[in-house]
């Protein structure tokens, strides 16, 4: 079920374009943000109805882009560690295995309490402050193992 807030947001997004279909990406993201960062089939179909676009096209869009989380639900904090070249040169791999150990999960998994999901990302445009990761909307840069531990502890404490 889409909330009033999301419906309003979709209306706003539609105003940016002459074509209804152009609002698909923004609408899907608005819905996802309102549903704990996950996208369900029902919500996709609801978007299709509102925008008057064939549901098949909506599914195709959701499937094409990496930021739509529909394959597998993500936890409260989605950790995406950049493992492209600049970050790898400065130790991304080490950070990943450290986080796998401390969180007790492997890449692609979510902790049993649904607190953290750990995945990799391709270059996030922050290579001068490598290694880095994104959690939710936020960038964490110039990482070290110590910094990562503190970031995870802070997020745990906040929730």
């Amino acid at each position: 079920m889409l909330t009033e807030k999301t419906l309003e947001k979709i209306k706003q997004i539609q105003k940016n374009y002459h074509s209804k279909k152009s609002a698909v990406m923004g609408a899907l993201m608005a819905v996802q943000r309102d549903s704990g960062n996950n996208l369900t089939r029902e919500d996709m179909d609801a978007v299709a109805k509102i925008l008057d676009v064939n549901p098949v096209e909506i599914h195709a869009v959701a499937g094409f882009y990496t930021m739509y989380n529909w394959k597998k639900p993500v936890g409260r904090h989605h950790i995406q560690v950049c493992w492209n070249l600049s970050c790898s040169l400065l130790g991304a791999e080490h950070l990943i295995s450290h986080m796998e150990k401390t969180l007790g999960i492997t890449l692609g998994e979510t902790t049993p309490d649904s607190m953290f999901t750990l995945t990799t990302a391709e270059c996030l445009g922050s290579c001068g402050t490598a290694p880095m990761m994104q959690i939710g909307d936020d960038y964490y840069e110039d990482l070290t193992v110590e910094k990562v531990d503190k970031i995870l502890a802070d997020l745990r404490a906040r929730s």
């Binding site: 074509s19 209804k20 195709a60 739509y68």
Partner: peptide, 23 residues
């Protein structure tokens, strides 16, 4: 207009497809 994670959308015609709401 926000993308949603796809390097190929930097290619100018893919960018246009994406702006039009497609893959």
């Amino acid at each position: 207009h926000r993308g949603a994670g796809a390097y190929i959308c930097g290619e100018e015609t893919a960018l246009l497809e994406s702006l039009e709401g497609g893959r």
